[in-house]
Computed example of a mutant assay.
Amino acid sequence: MVVALRRLPNPRLTGLGGGIFAAGVMFLLGCVDWLLFDGGPLMYGLLFLPVAALTAVWVRPADLVTAPVSVPIAFAFGTLPIAGGTGGVGGRVLAVITTLALNAGWLYGGTLVAGVIATVRKVRMIRRRYR
């Protein structure tokens, strides 16, 4: 299993690159969720957790602090296709805010996942330097 995991790509994204990666993937997943599942929050939330984990794993060690910050922004950006809303920009903004409020559990969960992974990576990096 370790050999199979080592064959996976191991990119090192900058802080900005990690944010753009997460936002782009979440927007794409939001579009797919809207097309296939009519914007159901369950699928979007379930798909957010692995994106948050991958963002925290793939960000450079120097930019670890950006992973838990960029992941919630990406979640909010990805809700644009599934939020709905009518009545122009104001209606769209209110729909996004409502979607964020109703999916706060997924938002907090993904942020926690990214934060824990970034913290563990930082602690391991500090221990390696200490040794």
Score class of each variant (00 low, 15 high):
residue 26 M to R: 11
residue 48 F to T: 09
residue 39 G to I: 01
residue 45 G to N: 08
residue 34 W to D: 10
residue 26 M to I: 06
residue 37 F to G: 06
residue 50 P to T: 00
residue 34 W to Q: 15
residue 29 L to M: 14
residue 30 G to C: 09
residue 53 A to F: 01
residue 51 V to Q: 07
residue 26 M to Y: 07
residue 55 T to C: 03
residue 41 P to M: 01
residue 52 A to C: 03
residue 49 L to R: 02
residue 40 G to E: 09
residue 41 P to Y: 01
residue 58 W to G: 09
residue 38 D to P: 10
residue 50 P to S: 04
residue 24 G to S: 13
residue 42 L to I: 09
residue 26 M to S: 07
residue 35 L to P: 13
residue 55 T to V: 04
residue 38 D to Q: 11
residue 30 G to D: 09
residue 40 G to P: 05
residue 29 L to V: 09
residue 48 F to R: 12
residue 25 V to L: 15
residue 33 D to C: 10
residue 46 L to A: 07
residue 52 A to G: 04
residue 55 T to I: 02
residue 40 G to Q: 10
residue 35 L to E: 14
residue 54 L to H: 03
residue 34 W to T: 11
residue 36 L to K: 14
residue 40 G to V: 00
residue 40 G to W: 00
residue 39 G to L: 03
residue 41 P to I: 04
residue 59 V to F: 00
residue 36 L to W: 14
residue 36 L to Q: 13
residue 43 M to R: 11
residue 35 L to K: 13
residue 55 T to W: 02
residue 25 V to H: 13
residue 27 F to W: 12
residue 44 Y to T: 05
residue 51 V to D: 08
residue 50 P to C: 02
residue 28 L to V: 13
residue 33 D to V: 14
residue 31 C to E: 14
residue 49 L to M: 06
residue 24 G to D: 05
residue 28 L to G: 11
residue 37 F to P: 06
residue 36 L to M: 13
residue 24 G to V: 10
residue 32 V to C: 11
residue 34 W to M: 12
residue 41 P to V: 06
residue 27 F to P: 06
residue 37 F to S: 14
residue 59 V to G: 03
residue 40 G to M: 03
residue 30 G to N: 08
residue 49 L to H: 01
residue 37 F to V: 06
residue 32 V to E: 07
residue 41 P to E: 01
residue 40 G to C: 01
residue 59 V to C: 04
residue 39 G to R: 07
residue 30 G to A: 10
residue 42 L to V: 12
residue 51 V to S: 05
residue 37 F to I: 01
residue 26 M to Q: 11
residue 60 R to I: 00
residue 60 R to Y: 00
residue 52 A to D: 04
residue 45 G to W: 03
residue 49 L to I: 08
residue 42 L to R: 14
residue 31 C to W: 15
residue 53 A to S: 08
residue 41 P to G: 05
residue 43 M to P: 12
residue 34 W to N: 15
residue 46 L to I: 01
residue 57 V to R: 06
residue 48 F to E: 07
residue 26 M to L: 15
residue 56 A to F: 02
residue 40 G to D: 09
residue 32 V to D: 15
residue 48 F to L: 10
residue 58 W to P: 07
residue 60 R to D: 13
residue 46 L to H: 05
residue 30 G to V: 05
